[in-house]
Design a protein around this nucleic acid. Structure first.
Lengths: 219, 219
DNA sequence: CATAATCTGTTGTAATTACAACGGGGATGA
DNA sequence: TCATCCCCGTTGTAATTACAACAGATTATG
C-alpha cells in the first residue's frame, strides 16, 4: 500500500497528514486495495453502501441506469479522487449508482463506519480524518448547490449570467478567467454550444460584458 | 434556550440525543439565539463563513444576488431546519449567499469550529454531534446529486424518465407515489407545467407508464 | 348540497433552443 | 513555412419548449 503514498498526498481526505501518519492510519482503518479490469464493477447499484473508494491508479466512472436500462455517466473520478462517500456517510442503505473502472485501475476501499463510529481517541489523526471527510463533502455540497443554481435558470442568457456572476464573486472582481472552453461551459450549464456562443456575442454587443477566450469582464 | 427543546428534537443535528444532553451541549458550544425582524439579514453574502444557523421559530430565506443585482431565492428553511452549514464546514472563507428572515424569526447560531475542532472528548455526545452533522450534509449531497441528474437531462421526457426512475428505485418497485403535484414536479425538473403534462400523457399513450394523480406505475 | 377554489389536461401560437454545416483564426508540429 | 487540427463564431432550419387561455375534474368550504 505504501507504494501509493504519493497519491494519498494529493487526496483531500489526507490533507495535513504526513506519510507515516497516513500509513499507520490505513492499517487502523483496515483499508484494502484491489485491482479492477477495464469495465469491471467496483460496486453495483443495490449493493449495501458501507464503504467509500479512493482511486489509486486508473480512473472510475460513476454510472446510473434508469428504469428502462438507459445508462448515463454521472461523474468520472480520476486518480486521487474519492467516490461513494456521500452514500456511505448518509443514511443510505444501498448505492443508487454503480462504479465502473474506466480503465485498468486500483481502488482502495475504506469502511465509512470505521471512520465515523470508531472511538476518536484510537489514533491521533482520526479526528483530523473526520474533519477532512466533512470538509470534502461540504465542499462538494457547495459546488453542487452552485451548479444547480446555474442549471435551473430558464434561458441560455440567464444561465450564463448566473454562472459568470458566481465566477466574478469568487474572483472578487468583474474581471476573471474561467476554467472552461466554450464546449465545456455549454456542457456545464446544460446548453448547446453554438446557441450559447451566439448568446454570449449578443450580450457583448449589448455592452453587458466583454470577453477574449477564457477571460471575461462584466460591466 | 430550553423553551426550544421541542424544536431541537425535530432537528437532524440532534438526532439520537435526549433533551438534557442537548441542553448541556448547547452550553458547551456557546450557542446563542437571536431574534430577527421580517426581511432583516441573519448574515450577508461576504460575511466570514464561520457559523451555521438553526431556525428556532419563523423561517429563513437563503437568497443570492447576481452581478447585476437580480435577487433569487435559493431555498426556504423552515422551523427546525439548518442553513449555512456547508459553507461553514467547507474551506469557504465568506458566505456566497445571504440569509434573510422571511418572517419574524428566532435563529440559533453555532460556531462550526467549536463543533469540529474542539477536542472530541470534551463532552460525551460531541462525537455523535459530528456524526449527525456529517450525515446531514452527506444526505443533502445525495439529494443535490440526484436533482442535478434530473435537471441536466435534455428534453422534458428525459427529465421525467430520470426522475421517475429514481423514485421507482427508491420505492423498490415500478409502482410508487411521488411527493409532488404537477406544478411542483414541473418546478423540480425545471420545465413548464403544461408542456410536462402533455408529455406525461404522450408517454401514457405510448404505454411506457400509467398514472393517476400522484401514483405512477412504470411498465 | 352548493359554491368556490384548485388541480389537471388540452390546444394553438410565439419564442427559444438544438442541430448541422461551414469558414476564419490560432495553435501545434512536421 | 506549410499543413493540420482544434476552437470559436455565424447562420438557417427543424424541433422543442414556454406561454396563455380554457374546460373538465377534483377538492375544499360554508
Amino acid at each position: 500500500m505504501d507504494e501509493y503514498l504519493p497519491v494519498f498526498r494529493e487526496c483531500t481526505l489526507f490533507a495535513g497528514m504526513n506519510e507515516s501518519d497516513i500509513s499507520s492510519m490505513l492499517k487502523c482503518l483496515g483499508a484494502r486495495a484491489s485491482s479492477f479490469e477495464k469495465n469491471s464493477f467496483v460496486f453495483m447499484a443495490g449493493d449495501p453502501a458501507a464503504s467509500m473508494g479512493v482511486v489509486l491508479s486508473g480512473g472510475v466512472h460513476v454510472v446510473q441506469e434508469d428504469f428502462w436500462g438507459n445508462r448515463s455517466i454521472v461523474t468520472h473520478v480520476p486518480r486521487g479522487g474519492i467516490f461513494g462517500e456521500a452514500f456511505a456517510c448518509a443514511e443510505e442503505t444501498v448505492y443508487p449508482v454503480s462504479a465502473v473502472a474506466s480503465e485498468r485501475s486500483t481502488v482502495m476501499r475504506v469502511d465509512c463506519g470505521r471512520i465515523i463510529k470508531t472511538c476518536t481517541t484510537a489514533c491521533g489523526f482520526h479526528s483530523r480524518l473526520i474533519r477532512n471527510l466533512l470538509t470534502t463533502i461540504a465542499g462538494k455540497n457547495v459546488m453542487l448547490t452552485q451548479h444547480l443554481e446555474h442549471v435551473t435558470r430558464h434561458g441560455t442568457r440567464e444561465k450564463l449570467m448566473a454562472y459568470l456572476s458566481s465566477q466574478a464573486r469568487a474572483a472578487g472582481s468583474g474581471s476573471f478567467v474561467i476554467p472552461f472552453n466554450r464546449q465545456e461551459l455549454a456542457d456545464y450549464i446544460s446548453a448547446d454550444r453554438s446557441a450559447m456562443s451566439n448568446e454570449l456575442c449578443k450580450m457583448r454587443d449589448e455592452g453587458i460584458l466583454r470577453f477574449r477566450k477564457n477571460h471575461f469582464e462584466l460591466l
